[in-house]
């Protein structure tokens, strides 16, 4: 009885590990990864933007705004690194890769500027960074529509 349970558990965990690390092979997979990446970036940018706006309006504590913006920045960095480490399967996806990488670097640097501004508590800098974040958000929205 216990032996059967043990091997079911082992089998289950192997399945779990394999499923997590499945690499992307064909072109459709690459576009799907690009779509997922842009959706994740939209979420991080919007989250940082909302937190910073609340901070500006005095609706939030400095530590709380900083926490949210830092989380958004860290998530954006990890999304950026996972996507750029993917190998595009063919030439056509390479064009997509370049536009994505350009948008990703703009997005992450916008969020980093926002985090720096929020931590310094400099309202004008925060507004400037927010404008950058807004711009990057629009580019990812259009990218997402294109990939849908």
């Amino acid at each position: 009885m216990c032996r059967r349970l043990a091997c079911v558990a082992v089998l289950g965990s192997c399945l779990l590990l394999v499923a997590c690390a499945a690499p992307v092979f064909d072109d459709g997979g690459y576009r799907h990864a690009a779509l997922q990446t842009s959706m994740a970036m939209v979420s991080d940018l919007a989250s940082g933007q909302l937190a910073a706006q609340l901070g500006l309006r005095g609706n939030s504590f400095p530590t709380f705004t900083d926490g949210n913006v830092t989380d958004a920045e860290n998530d954006a960095d990890s999304v950026n690194s996972t996507f750029s480490s993917r190998q595009p399967p063919d030439a056509r996806s390479d064009a997509l890769r370049r536009t994505m990488l350009q948008a990703l670097s703009d997005g992450t640097s916008a969020l980093t500027d926002l985090r720096v501004a929020v931590r310094m508590g400099d309202r004008t800098q925060v507004r400037k960074a927010l404008a950058e974040v807004g711009k990057s958000l629009k580019t990812f929205d259009t990218l997402q529509q294109g990939l849908q």
């Binding site: 959706m39 994740a40 939209v42 979420s43 919007a46 989250s47 933007q49 909302l50 709380f64 926490g67 949210n68 989380d71 998530d75």
Partner: peptide, 10 residues
Amino acid sequence: LNIQVSHLDQ
């Protein structure tokens, strides 16, 4: 805003 929650503070 299409924000996906992945942290408690969100």
